[in-house]
């Protein structure tokens, strides 16, 4: 007979699932804005700000608007930082913090 997983393990699994889902949703939004890359270019560690030429100020603001509409959250002006928009992973973290 196997014992039930601990609360910590369940919480960890739920968090991991949320991260994966949020990351996938963000990638979908990014593909809509920057469509000229193959799908396999995009993953959790894909670098954004300063790494992709097309990820300019216009793309960044467009992405913010899409994130707010899609996740029904509001980002502050202070959230617009190089750290938050460094990669899909850092952006995922920001969205989960604001959700």
């Amino acid at each position: 007979m196997t014992s039930a997983p601990s609360i910590e393990i369940v919480t960890e699994q739920v968090t991991e699932r949320k991260v994966t889902q949020t990351s996938a949703q963000l990638i979908k939004l990014l593909i809509g804005i920057i469509p000229n890359y193959q799908d396999d270019f995009w993953h959790a560690e894909t670098e954004l700000f300063g790494a992709i030429a097309e990820f300019d100020s216009m793309a960044l603001v467009t992405l913010i608007g899409e994130i707010e509409a899609h996740f029904d959250i509001t980002l502050d002006d202070d959230d617009i930082s190089a750290n938050n928009f460094a990669s899909v992973a850092s952006l995922t973290e920001l969205v989960l913090e604001r959700s």
């Binding site: 700000f49 300019d56 100020s57 960044l60 603001v61 913010i64 617009i80 930082s81």
Partner: peptide, 17 residues
């Protein structure tokens, strides 16, 4: 609000604008 954010984003990118 989105339009004004362009200015913040430009600052972020070190754009001359």
């Amino acid at each position: 609000q989105q339009f004004k954010r362009l200015a913040l984003a430009a600052q972020l990118s070190g754009n001359a604008q």
